[in-house]
């Protein structure tokens, strides 16, 4: 464990708490893409259920349980508790165009052609593109509540911080995970223009608005 990865995971943890805080305080899930949240459940279930047969560390176990549980709870909040505030008409990204290619990539790029390794690759590829429905919704509405932008900033920072972690591990342990690194670079690149707008508007205390 190194500080980059620790702060990355803490940023991911923070993003979940910010999202839960937003849903609870505004009593709505307006501006949040259900499809992205559902993809995250698929990502966590497909990658973190290895806690059932592998033990890495207490930290690893607790974090995996938390991410699976919290992402399912968020789906419950969106689909049940605050259902009236969910507008599927603006959450229009075709998820099948995302899952298909990821499944194909996982069948090609994996460390071993076994069910668990292909599933792991699928999870990694899915995670890198899971934010797309949310970004498309943002593009469509052209603006977002400030707290939602903080959620996205923390979420984007999570995998962005994994990049220096991978560099650090390459030089200190001589290990590198090409599949995770490639997907992580793509995942972080998708946040580029969001971060640009975020740091030039929200951080200056203005409202988050995409150029019309």
């Amino acid at each position: 464990m190194n500080l980059f990865r620790l702060f990355g995971d803490l940023s991911h943890l923070a993003s979940i708490f910010i999202l839960l805080h937003k849903i609870r305080t505004t009593r709505s899930c307006r501006g949040i893409s259900f499809k992205t949240q559902a993809l995250y459940v698929a990502v966590f279930v497909s990658r973190y259920l290895d806690i059932l047969w592998e033990w890495v560390s207490l930290y690893n176990f607790v974090m995996k349980v938390f991410f699976i549980a919290s992402s399912c709870f968020i789906l419950y909040l969106m689909k049940m508790k605050y259902r009236p505030t969910h507008d599927p008409s603006i959450d229009t990204f075709r998820v099948e165009f995302l899952v298909g290619p990821c499944a194909l990539l996982a069948l090609i790029f994996n460390y071993k052609f076994t069910f668990t390794e292909v599933l792991w690759s699928l999870s990694i590829f899915l995670e890198s593109l899971a934010i797309l429905p949310q970004l498309f919704m943002l593009q469509r509405t052209g603006e977002a509540e400030t707290i939602t932008t903080h959620y996205l900033a923390a979420l984007g920072a999570y995998r962005a911080l994994y990049i220096p972690n991978w560099i650090y591990r390459y030089f200190s342990e001589g290990v590198v995970d090409p599949i995770a690194v490639t997907a992580g670079l793509v995942q972080t690149a998708l946040y580029a223009d969001f971060f640009y707008v975020y740091f030039t508007t929200v951080i200056q205390g203005q409202k988050f608005e995409l150029p019309a």
Partner: peptide, 10 residues
Amino acid sequence: GHTDHVKDEL
């Protein structure tokens, strides 16, 4: 082999 590649990451 690769199968034991760094799986200690989230």
